[in-house]
Write a protein that binds this DNA or RNA. Structure first.
Length: 758
DNA sequence: CTAGGGTTAG
């Protein structure tokens, strides 16, 4: 029968074409019913030429009505597949008797198109079980899937099956196999296969080029690229993409220019790659040029290109432009349609939305991030782990524990098992949100899936809360379980040691990092060490350490040193360090503030104000201190001397009363000192009411007495406020938790978890 | 054959 032979396409007549055209334009739906033509001709023409969702359904209905499912089913199936209506395709498929290889293949390729690789592979297995033999197209489709999902065994199995069954090889199939081995880095196999190929195409060369590019051998790759007998757009894209991923951004850019000059095709792949290059180089102007070219080439409606554009504008810092493009995306494609099959349109929207969430987070627009997230929940957009992880990380950075809990609840409902990425971001979220207990609970839940990042997140969490011993215990347990720590793990351990004043341990682990794990210390590690020695008061040792390790060009190191000088009130050393610092990083406000604080701490008011004047002279604006408290889904933020809160009168009145009572139990409220001791906040503040005091006062007024008060602060807490918090916790018998820019302070019964060592 | 989001630190 003729219809069996789908692949040797019998092309439709102009009349059918016209008809299909009107269908796909949506200008006709019911005319078809009255059309007096042979059905499967119609169906066939239709399935070739339309990807209109609505009309494929109409056609399906018509087909069922006239009972021609045996004959024309697969044409409608193809139509469903082309319009990515996999649910309908699957349903139709289930109804169809006598499914031949073409039917199976249509459905398999359909699932593969919409990224449902697992489903596609499952179907392939079922097909084999039913005794249907795959054809060339099935095989190359499935091989591609194997290489995509990284299923080496299945890929090799198929290769074996091909050899055993003496399938006649063609270039396409051989290329698929070559690509499979290339992707799995099985170069010996790949080479053998390549040598045995009688016919080679440009694709073949491109695969080999891809191998060289991925092995990061720039010169070899370029040499190969230059000597290709025939180059197409994919060759250019491959080499440019490879250079970019290898970090050779300028080389990638040069080739991109060359490609454009040579008037080679600038396709949607090229666009994405070009935008990635720009995103890494962070050159907005260049991004605009690429954008212009994309529009000129008419590629701006491609989903991939759109999300790459959004990404590029976000990374280059132009959030507005990104949201303009985002708002022009067709909406509604991503809404859940009684299925869990993801279409490529849906993918585009998910990627774009998560990019926007990511962009908002990066730009500190947490509210917008949450709004976008909430809209995704409300519209029942199929959210994947990427999006959620973005939102979780937004919660940790904003320190909004309550919202974080809600997101966690959402995850609980939608994700069956936490993966390592999500778990570590949740641990981080709870730790940074102030609830180390909850972080621990997630950690315990992951016993069977622990990896180095999860361990590290937990260790860092402990460090953040000053639980040095616990961090070390975790670290040792991790090593015992055979997990190899990485450089970030060591940053966590060393921070833990320095925050808890564990000098010996810190020293031990620094050496262990170098000697046992062969990790070369980076700036962060050195800074931790300087901090560690400095907090122990070993200022001369710090100096030696800096010169011994040749760190004198690193401003971060000097800054840590300066903090220690301040802690130990060594004004001479502090001045000397500031000199170094001002020379290295004249624009850093922190150095001036530290020096000024140090001077006022030693009652040297004149020098203190000189430091502050020279800061103003250099045109540096100090970041105003800000504290915030999260109550009932609302963030209340305060700056020093703030009068803008609706309840400010009440707050100040309470604060006055509180300070009066605190003085009775030994609080020394020296206004002059507070005004000068601008640890991080400014001195010109009215009455010395630093923002964290206001936030705490508001918390006490508004919250039931059993609830701990959680405050976030954008700078470091000052000595006076630290004292204030300790005594308040004692006087009122309440737990107060302050997260400052570096760490947590848990105030309880007159003590702080940092041991007054911060 | 070639293109797209996520975890820990700073």
């Amino acid at each position: 029968m003729r219809w069996m032979n789908l692949s040797s396409s019998c092309f439709p007549s102009p009349a059918f074409l016209k008809l299909s055209h009107s269908i796909s334009q949506g200008t006709m739906t019911h005319k078809i019913i009255s059309f007096n033509l042979s059905e499967h001709h119609l169906f066939k023409s239709f399935s070739y030429h339309t990807s209109n969702h609505f009309s494929s359904n109409t056609l399906h209905a018509k087909m069922v009505k006239i009972g021609s499912i045996f004959v024309s089913g697969k044409f409608v199936l193809t139509s469903y597949v082309k319009s990515e209506k996999l649910n309908d395709a699957q349903k139709l498929f289930d109804e169809m008797p006598n499914r031949d290889v073409l039917t199976w293949t249509a459905l398999i390729s359909g699932f593969s198109r919409v990224n449902s690789s697992g489903m596609a592979l499952q179907l392939f297995r079922e097909m084999l079980v039913e005794g249907v033999s795959p054809n060339h197209f099935t095989l190359s489709t499935v091989l591609k899937l194997c290489s995509k999902v990284g299923d080496v065994r299945m890929g090799k199995g198929i290769h074996g099956w091909i050899l055993r069954n003496g399938v006649k090889l063609d270039v396409v199939l051989e290329n698929s196999m070559l690509d499979l081995y290339a992707k799995f880095d099985e170069f010996v196999y790949a080479r053998k296969l390549y040598d045995s190929m009688r016919e080679k195409s440009t694709d073949t060369d491109n695969i080999i080029l891809g191998v060289y590019v991925r092995s990061c051998d720039v010169n070899k790759s370029l040499h190969l690229f230059r000597n290709l007998p025939c180059r197409n757009a994919a060759s250019w894209n491959t080499i440019i993409c490879g250079l970019m991923q290898g970090g050779y951004l300028n080389a990638a850019l040069e080739l991109l220019y060359e490609m454009v000059e040579n008037e080679s095709e600038f396709n949607n792949f090229t666009s994405s790659i070009a935008l990635s290059v720009v995103s890494s180089l962070l050159i907005l102007e260049l991004g605009r040029q690429v954008h212009g070219r994309i529009v000129r080439c008419g590629l701006h409606n491609d989903g991939f290109v759109k999300s790459a554009l959004i990404n590029m504008y976000i990374k280059c810092g132009n959030l507005e432009k990104a949201s303009v493009i985002y708002s022009r995306l067709p909406s509604g494609f991503a809404t859940k349609q009684s299925s869990n099959i993801v279409c490529s349109d849906t993918m585009t929207e998910i990627v774009s939305r998560s990019s926007m969430v990511y962009g908002y987070v990066r730009n500190g627009k947490y509210e917008d991030a949450f709004k976008t997230f909430v809209s995704m929940v409300r519209e029942r957009v199929l959210m994947d782990k990427f999006t959620i992880a973005n939102v979780v990380s937004a919660c940790s950075n904003a320190g909004v524990l309550e919202l974080g809990r809600q997101v966690h609840g959402f995850i609980h409902k939608t994700v069956e098992q936490l993966d390592a990425h999500l778990a570590s971001s949740l641990i981080d979220m709870y730790a940074k949100g102030g609830s180390l207990d909850c972080a621990h609970r997630i950690f315990d839940q992951m016993t069977n899936y622990l990896n180095v990042v999860i361990w590290t997140s937990m260790i860092v969490g402990c460090a953040l809360h000053g639980h040095g011993k616990e961090a070390i215990r975790l670290f040792e347990q991790m090593r015992y379980e055979g997990i190899i720590p990485n450089e970030v793990t060591f940053i966590g351990v060393l921070t833990a040691c320095s925050h808890a004043g564990l000098l010996e341990d810190g020293h031990l682990y620094f050496n262990m990092m170098k000697d046992v794990y062969a990790i070369k210390p980076k700036v962060e590690h050195y800074t931790c060490m300087v901090d560690l020695y400095g907090r122990a008061g070993l200022l001369n040792e710090v100096k030696e350490f800096i010169y011994e390790n040749d760190l004198s060009h690193l401003s971060a190191v000097w800054k840590a040193f300066l903090s220690s000088c301040r802690l130990y009130r060594d004004l001479e050393m502090g001045k000397w360090v500031s000199e170094k610092l001002f020379r290295l990083k004249p624009q850093d406000e922190g150095s001036y503030v530290l020096l000024s604080n140090m001077c006022s701490g030693s009652q040297k008011w004149e020098e203190a104000s000189r430091a502050r004047r020279s800061m103003q002279h250099s045109g540096i604006n100090k970041t105003p201190g800000q504290s915030w408290i999260h109550l009932k889904n609302q963030v209340h933020s305060f700056v020093a001397g703030d009068q803008s809160h609706p309840q400010h009168a009440q707050i100040y009145e309470y604060l006055d009363k509180l300070i009066g009572r605190l003085k009775e139990i030994g609080y020394l409220h020296d206004v002059k000192l507070v005004m000068q001791d601008v640890e991080e906040e400014q001195g010109e503040v009215l009455l010395g009411w630093h923002s964290e005091k206001l936030a705490v006062a508001y918390g006490i007024i508004s919250l039931g007495s059993a609830i701990p008060i959680r405050i976030m602060k954008n700078l470091r807490i000052c000595t006076d406020c630290h004292n204030f918090m300790k005594l308040t916790s004692q006087l009122l018998g309440r737990e107060i938790i302050v997260r400052d820019i570096y760490r947590f302070h848990h105030f309880n019964s007159g003590h702080c978890s940092c041991g007054d060592y911060w």
